[in-house]
Write a protein that binds this DNA or RNA. Structure first.
Lengths: 193, 193
DNA sequence: CACATTAGTGAACAAGTGTACACATCGCTT
DNA sequence: AAGCGATGTGTACACTTGTTCACTAATGTG
């Protein structure tokens, strides 16, 4: 799995990886592959599972550092960017998988995103934010937020890790996106019900 | 190019296509490939160019049908969904290319999206909508809109063409996303400047 | 200690891959 | 009608690919 991630990190697309290529990168003979996975799709699914862990770690850190802050959005985006840098290959895999070749991987990633969105909704409820929104509308909002951040991911991953200027731009832009969304959510239903 | 699109339409990922595979689908001998393209990346780039045409056609139709409507957003989303269905393979290619293997294709698609966003901004200006926004903020809004729609694309393309219920759901959800964004844009700067 | 499980090995095979080269056709313009 | 450029063909070569099978080394449990 690390070998596959490493190749993805080097710019390859997961869908174009072959068994021999992965085992070569892992420093192991091709046949060994079958000791662990039935095929590449299987490997992809296990990567999705591990991706879940990465996301959960990120959420935990966000919750710990953000709760007492007044710049909630800005801080969260910062943490997200930091994690995306630290786990570049994982997030690359995630971005690829969204439109990937394996239906199962695709669905897995989508489901991780849904989970993330619902956790975000819970947090907002706990913080007594957006209390005027119905549960469904809060879910809607959080879904939109998660999508927006996920899209920023593709921006982030296409600039080199040390291009601090561009990274800063992306962070600012993403922050504004979210501010605009929450601004809309704040006025939702009050005048569009 | 049609052969490559056809394969993508059948669920393959562009990055995993080979020259022989494409020529086979095209009903042509492998060597013929080199009469038209230097390699698969080159083919991808030419597909991006043609994608540009598809998008422009879509914009034209949207402009023609939407201008006199009061349900601007809903209509636009409808037209988008219709075009995404009609040119399924093209949009699949677009969704794949965003996190694809070829940097050039990636940049090409991104640039098409930027163009689309800027055209949208022009239209809004012409319609005298969102006049309280600075040019930069209007661009920001349109970028966010285009991203949101593009993300809905991945939802749309992952359900089968004849699942009208799901397609309707996606259409409704996307419409609400855009309504929320424009609602936020409507209050932007007035209370967050 | 013995034994079963797990992870890794090496050789083998049929099939598929990208690319090169010389040759054949077609349609167009002069 | 002649010639030319663009497109397609057939053959060939050196690799790479997925998967199989029987075998070996390490691991931890009774």
């Amino acid at each position: 799995m690390n070998a596959a991630l490493a190749l993805v990190g080097k710019g390859r697309h997961f869908a174009s990886l072959g068994i021999r290529e992965v085992t070569r990168q892992a420093g192991v003979v091709p046949t060994s592959f079958y000791r662990h996975f039935r095929n590449m799709d299987d490997l992809g699914l296990q990567l999705v599972d591990e991706l879940g862990l990465v996301l959960r770690r990120m959420m935990r850190e966000a919750r710990a550092n953000v709760l007492q802050s007044d710049k909630l959005i800005e801080e969260s985006v910062g943490i997200f960017v930091a994690h995306a840098q630290a786990n570049r290959s994982f997030f690359l895999f995630m971005a690829q998988g969204l439109a990937g070749e394996s239906r199962a991987v695709q669905e897995g990633i989508r489901s991780e995103m849904r989970f993330f969105a619902s956790e975000l909704a819970n947090d907002l409820r706990r913080l007594r934010l957006m209390e005027h929104l119905s549960d469904a509308d809060l879910d809607l909002t959080c879904d939109l937020v998660v999508r927006t951040v996920a899209f920023s991911l593709t921006d982030l991953l296409s600039v080199s890790t040390d291009d601090d200027y561009q990274i800063g731009q992306i962070r600012k832009r993403t922050t504004r996106f979210l501010q605009m969304i929450f601004l809309g959510a704040g006025h939702w239903q009050s005048d569009s019900a």
